[in-house]
Design a protein around this nucleic acid. Structure first.
Lengths: 222, 222
DNA sequence: TAGATTGTTAATCGATTAACAATC
DNA sequence: TAGATTGTTAATCGATTAACAATC
């Protein structure tokens, strides 16, 4: 594989969108697609699609475009989701449980190996075929299992402490759903902070902007 | 308020992060902060913080910086979350319910006025003090209540149909949590597509990139 | 007052778009 | 073969950073 120095975050963030677009095309029975075809569906330019993909290699053919299945496989490979990742869920409250049940982990090669919680009612149960253990069993579990990724969904008050603990015990990636910004700076640990509200706020801003634009238009039309 | 022509999406996306930063500062009892102080906490440059804020107005003082409370209020105003927004939840499955219970709607002036679902078990119940109605009651409800925003959490198969229906019945903003890309292009309706998996994939990419960087370093050290 | 820090203008940097030779 | 479309280089555009006068 090419050395991936300087792939921009924007490019990385578009890869999952390309993948979803290709999955839709495959479901529609399409076997080939051009960069212009992808671009149109996503509201981008064909230039950008080709430019993005070319950061990682050559996946198309002149005069033909891209084979849908092949490009899908290639993007999965670039993202790393062609390989299996072992995942634990720490904090199996309502958010943790909902994700375990509804997110397509299996279909993307994520293996939910265990959940951990402090609630005695949950310990020993299963959520979506995944066993839930007590928080005390976490260290022992990590010592004997190579876990790739942790879904962090504990209460806000516990977020920083638990994240630090996970990092110290060798978890290399934390998907942080606690709504607390984790700036761990604990190389070699990567963290992705998910903030539901940010996206709601952004929508609200757009709503207000649209409505005031419409109000201006209406005034001018009078 | 200034006319907001050409505020970049990047700037808009940073506003919620500034807000969260200020909230943390306020909780720590801080009453003032400089652009450099905000920038450091968020890993940005002070220039960028000032540049972003100056798109909307002047909120600081030379030699002093920003008053934490005042700036918080101003950003809420810019985002539009100082005003009350009436919200309905369409699709009160496990994702819809979890959000209703756990997301801080009230604290950000979102008023959850109703939920709608087709499941007879849910209809007539309350989730987090919000009544759940039958899907058949939706149209009548929209006719008599001015709803600002809809949280869309129906099954994937229903997403496009329901979104179109909402748009046609006057919902101006849809927060789409169905994992289906909605490219409605139904002006004047704004849509925000939330894709949980995108962020997980992006984390996985970073994980792989970090691990292969470490492997290279290790080889070189031998 | 002197030091600090803003808001803004100018300079730089990076990302997107356009263009086109290569070629399926 | 002729038309289509890639991968890539060059041109443009926009976003970030640097610099600094204004001033609290």
């Amino acid at each position: 594989m090419k050395v991936m120095l300087g792939v921009s975050q924007n490019t990385i963030n578009r890869l999952p969108k390309y993948l979803r677009c290709l999955q839709e095309l495959a479901e529609d029975g399409r076997t080939r697609v051009s960069s212009a075809g992808i671009a149109e569906r996503l509201g981008l330019t064909s230039s950008q699609v080709r430019q993005d993909l070319s950061r990682f290699g050559s996946y198309g053919s002149q005069g033909y475009g891209y084979d849908v299945e092949t490009l899908m496989r290639s993007i999965r490979e670039i993202l790393g989701i062609d390989r299996t990742h072992k995942v634990i869920v720490v904090g199996v409250g309502s958010i943790g449980r909902t994700l375990m049940k509804h997110l397509d982990f299996e279909g993307n090669n994520y293996e939910l190996v265990a959940g951990f919680d402090t609630n005695p009612m949950l310990i020993g149960t299963q959520v979506h075929d995944t066993p839930i253990y007590s928080a005390e069993e976490l260290n022992a579990f990590l010592a004997e299992t190579q876990v790739d990724l942790c879904v962090l969904a504990v209460p806000q008050a516990d977020a920083k402490r638990v994240a630090l603990h996970l990092a110290k015990n060798g978890i290399p990636a934390i998907w942080n759903l606690t709504n607390v910004d984790l700036e761990l700076d604990l190389f070699p640990v990567v963290v992705e902070n998910v903030h539901f509200l940010d996206s709601l706020f952004s929508l609200t801003f757009q709503l207000e902007a649209m409505q005031s634009a419409m109000a201006r238009t209406a005034r001018r039309a009078q």
